[in-house]
Design a protein around this nucleic acid. Structure first.
Lengths: 141, 141
DNA sequence: TTTAATTCCTGTAGTGGCTACAGGAGCAAG
DNA sequence: CTTGCTCCTGTAGCCACTACAGGAATTAAA
């Protein structure tokens, strides 16, 4: 059994974040010592580590809650997990593509900057009319 | 001269977001009509459009404020702009690399899911000890 | 001209996922 | 017994918005 500091060390989750997860009901409330301190079992620490790893993989908390409830079931249906993971993969791929577009746009804009002290063509073209106007209500991330 | 609705249309910035930018001092306060409505000049709309384009490129507001103050100067020093843009490019590239790592990790995890209804190896390995433990206080985005 | 519809106003609160305090209490070592 | 560490609760801040509520002003139609 461990205090929150040890639980934080072992799970890799910040102490404040652990308390936040508890407040939000993302992980169950642990037991308390006589003095009112949180006491974590190895199982509870494993759960925190699980949440941390999922966050590291970029999953939002809402999905992680689904994962956690699936791990509670005996028949933790793999199909559902796979679907969620694949949707998340799609989102990651979309983000990568989006960032690549940004990179290209930025590269071509900043390549015109000649590093002198004169008027900046990058700022100019961003300020001008009709530059990147495919304003058809597209993906505002 | 235009009301906020037209300014929103022409700049591509949401009405609520325009008011937010004003509250935060990101763009200057426009004039008002007799009835108290905001009235935008074409220049002010250009500024809003500039902010929107920079946001589309992924620049944070703090950087955009620097850009805006540079556009106010006569000698809008290109060097500074270029440096900021290149730093931003580095961040974008780092994000892309990070996402690619996530993608690989997710792919290898979910590839073990056999889409059946049995215990899920992905959830299992995320719950187990000693999976991805390079816990040396690394980049928590 | 009256009414109905639309646009605008201010102010406040919520989003996600934490992080950072302030002000106090518990607890172990010297 | 004091020092210093860890822990407690509660609240506020971060970023960049977004979404109301409740009312006023303007415009268009009848």
């Amino acid at each position: 059994m461990f205090t929150i500091g040890k639980a934080s060390e072992q799970s890799g989750v910040n102490i404040e974040t652990i308390r936040y997860y508890e407040r939000e009901g993302i992980v169950p409330r642990p037991g308390r010592s006589a003095g009112g301190r949180r006491i974590y079992s190895p199982d509870e620490i494993a759960k925190l580590r699980f949440v941390r790893r999922c966050r590291d993989l970029g999953f939002p908390i809402s999905i992680i809650q689904t994962f956690l409830s699936l791990t509670e079931q005996d028949d933790r249906s793999c199909g559902e997990v796979k679907t969620l993971a694949e949707n998340h993969l799609d989102e990651i791929n979309a983000k990568i593509e989006n960032l690549k577009c940004l990179r290209e746009a930025l590269l071509s804009l900043s390549s015109n900057c000649d590093d002198g002290t004169a008027a900046c063509p990058m700022l100019d073209s961003l300020m001008k009319d009709g530059f990147g106007e495919d304003r058809s209500e597209q993906s505002r991330h």
